[in-house]
């Protein structure tokens, strides 16, 4: 059987909110090392990769590897019934066709069980090679969210460029153009407000803002976001999940005709 007890249940609620509009159905792959998920959006342009390590759970048991096929909209409906401070436990039998979500209120005076039907999903796993990215930028996640939202009101695509000075986001549309530069900034009081640039080579790539906007639904998971870019490769937008792992989004670049 599989059982995972998560003291900070709100993390799971936030993960679902971040991915449920991008991916419809996906397998949650449970093993003794944790829960992993990999899924593409329906147009095969973006990919979600989630890792929740067993060590981040208060209690974790997985007797044999299980692929739990889940409709994310339905799981989101169930998790919305959990309080933000609730402890969430996931349970599934080896041969079962359901998953149980148990919600415990912080002072243990309310215990709720929700059972959800599982589905059979043919997963399409992609092999993502280890890559030394040409540029890696870490910046405040709220700042990235704001930039992507602001640019979305002006254009459909953004050119993301990284030089040793910083990262730039540019767009253009019927009403005009916009260009935002965030400079490397490590002289701030709080580490989470820093913008850092690691660069081997300047890089500039074009991406659909609609997808970048969707990724920023994960902002609540982490105060910082890491953008990894290489010429002619998908961008990686990574939100680290404290003590547990990460939520990563990959987005294929656009190419000039």
């Amino acid at each position: 059987m599989f059982e995972g007890r998560l003291l900070q249940g709100s993390l799971l609620k936030k993960v679902l909110e971040a991915i449920k509009d991008l991916v419809t159905d996906t397998n949650f792959d449970c093993s003794e090392t944790g829960i992993a998920l990999q899924a593409m959006d329906s147009s095969h342009v973006a990919l979600v990769s989630l890792l929740l390590k067993d060590t981040g759970f208060d209690h974790f048991r997985c007797d044999r590897n299980l692929a739990l096929g889940i409709n994310l909209q339905n799981m989101s409906k169930m998790l919305k019934c959990a309080g933000n401070d609730d402890i969430i436990t996931l349970k599934a039998e080896d041969e079962g066709d359901t998953i149980t979500f148990m919600f415990e209120s912080p002072n243990q005076d309310k215990i709720s069980d929700f059972e959800m039907k599982l589905m059979d999903i043919d997963s399409e796993h992609l092999g993502i090679p280890d890559t030394d990215y040409q540029a890696i930028v870490t910046m405040p996640s709220a700042e990235f969210q704001r930039i992507v939202r602001d640019l979305s009101s002006i254009g459909d695509t953004a050119v993301i460029g990284v030089t040793k000075e910083g990262i730039s986001f540019s767009t253009g549309g019927d009403i005009g153009k916009a260009n935002i530069v965030c400079r490397q900034n490590t002289n701030v009081d709080k580490e989470e407000d820093q913008t850092t640039v690691e660069i081997h080579e300047p890089v500039s790539l074009t991406f659909a803002l609609r997808y970048l906007n969707s990724f920023t639904k994960a902002t609540a998971l982490s105060p910082q976001v890491t953008l990894s870019l290489s010429k002619e490769l998908p961008i990686v937008v990574e939100y680290k999940i404290e003590k547990m792992g990460f939520l990563r989004f990959y987005l294929a670049p656009k190419i000039e005709e």
């Binding site: 095969h44 992609l126 659909a208 998908p234 990959y250 656009k254």
Partner: peptide, 14 residues
């Protein structure tokens, strides 16, 4: 308008 690449052009299906 630039063309949208597909992820399968970068990553192998496994």
């Amino acid at each position: 308008t630039p063309l949208q690449n597909n992820l399968s052009e970068f990553f192998a299906m496994i």
